[in-house]
Nucleic acid binder design. Structure first.
Lengths: 224, 224
DNA sequence: CCTCCTTGGATAGCCACACTACCTAATAAT
DNA sequence: ATTATTAGGTAGTGTGGCTATCCAAGGAGG
């Protein structure tokens, strides 16, 4: 398959594909001559993954490249490869260990993870991310205790255990395993996020409809 | 409080504050003279909210303005105001009703929402967002059925019912209600997202440690 | 063999976004 | 009177994700 076909089947313009090639998101095609390269289904698949992470997951290109680099680093065990993918997926946050709020929040996070018995790397960047979120909540006047966070943690664990993790083929080829993991994290993450918004709309409507506006016809969301 | 104090207390540079004022994210201060305006705690509070939505929630400035416009539109009932906030928080997605995959996915979404008995507006943009996600999952070779989605939906509803919604003061002043709702959606949403990643790391480590690498010392996430 | 089209490769430009710098005139504080 | 600060405005900056243009090398049809 040549680049024009790749473009036609994926819906991604040729210059954009070239850009992804330059950026290392897409592996080079099989170059048959100076001005001819052959692409295959794996490229199409990769391209679709890239677009999904960009458009649905809103991940920056640099993040996607980090994930891909981890997949293609043959020296890594599957375990470390998945770890690298997890690391790449988290938004880096610089810690403020000298800030009192930060230290308290970090302690809360670490204690909760420990109490739950989660086997998470002590330097996992997700710990910093969660810490940052807890600090921000405090600054916004909604201080968060372990009791506030625990229901979210157990719900997350349930979903991961019973849904996400069962979908990941740990014994298959390594690239498929990471790809599935990333898809689960990003796309099912998005799905959950949207479902949460839907549930919140439904619940707040339910509560307010105890005393609704006279002719309960709420105006539809005006398009812009 | 003058602008310099506002800047000092929030950590936001003065030019950025001016930018937010221009963009309508921050209400004008109480202008006491041509070159003097007074700001108060509400401005500080709003400023912190803006930064939280920008930095933790990664919401675009335009989205934040939409939320704020809804709050400040006195004509809206609390119900409609919350609806507007929900609408503003969703990423717009243009529907493709002529696409076969899209129609099937949309049907799946609508049926699921109906079966759950959720009182969601039929034109709610979140329906489109979820549809888009389901379509993308299919394109990536992970077709999604209602059974796949349901556990996420019920978990979302549980969390909203027992955590988020209980935090929202529906009977208080309207701005506080929306503000709390937005904080819940964005910040607790972020917290859940991170917790999910932590849970996933923990679970995949647990599975792979059945047959780990010889000296199970996984390398820490290399800092860049 | 000649012509034309596509491709790979490279450079430079574009646009949106979130700021950031600079300027001016008015004023408050000293 | 002098100095510092402010509101208000315009213009510039840096980053990110493309997009446009150019060029030379093939390959395919005639």
């Amino acid at each position: 398959m040549r680049i024009s076909q790749l473009s036609a089947e994926s819906g991604v313009p040729i210059p954009t594909i070239k850009y992804y090639l330059r950026e290392g998101l897409l592996p080079q095609g099989d170059q048959t001559a100076a001005t001819r390269a052959e692409y295959d289904q794996s490229h199409l698949r990769r391209l679709r993954l890239i677009r999904a992470l960009l458009e649905v997951g809103r991940l920056p290109v640099a993040t996607i490249r980090n994930v891909i680099d981890a997949v293609e680093d043959e020296r890594l065990s599957v375990h470390d490869m998945l770890g690298a993918a997890h690391y790449a997926l988290s938004t880096p946050v610089e810690p403020h260990p000298d800030d009192e709020d930060w230290r308290a929040a970090r302690e809360l996070v670490d204690e909760m993870v420990a109490d739950l018995g989660w086997g998470v790397h002590p330097l996992a960047p997700a710990r910093d991310e969660l810490t940052q979120t807890v600090v921000t909540l405090k600054r916004l006047g909604m201080p968060t205790s372990r009791e506030d966070l625990l229901p979210y943690a157990t719900a997350a664990l349930d979903l991961v255990r019973e849904q996400d993790i069962t979908k990941i083929p740990f014994d298959g080829p390594r690239d498929v395993a990471v790809e599935t993991l990333v898809i689960c994290e990003v796309l099912y993450g998005k799905a959950f996020d949207v479902l949460r918004r839907l549930a919140q709309e439904s619940e707040s409507a339910r509560i307010l409809d105890a005393a609704p506006c006279p002719e309960g016809e709420s105006q539809p969301p005006a398009p812009e």
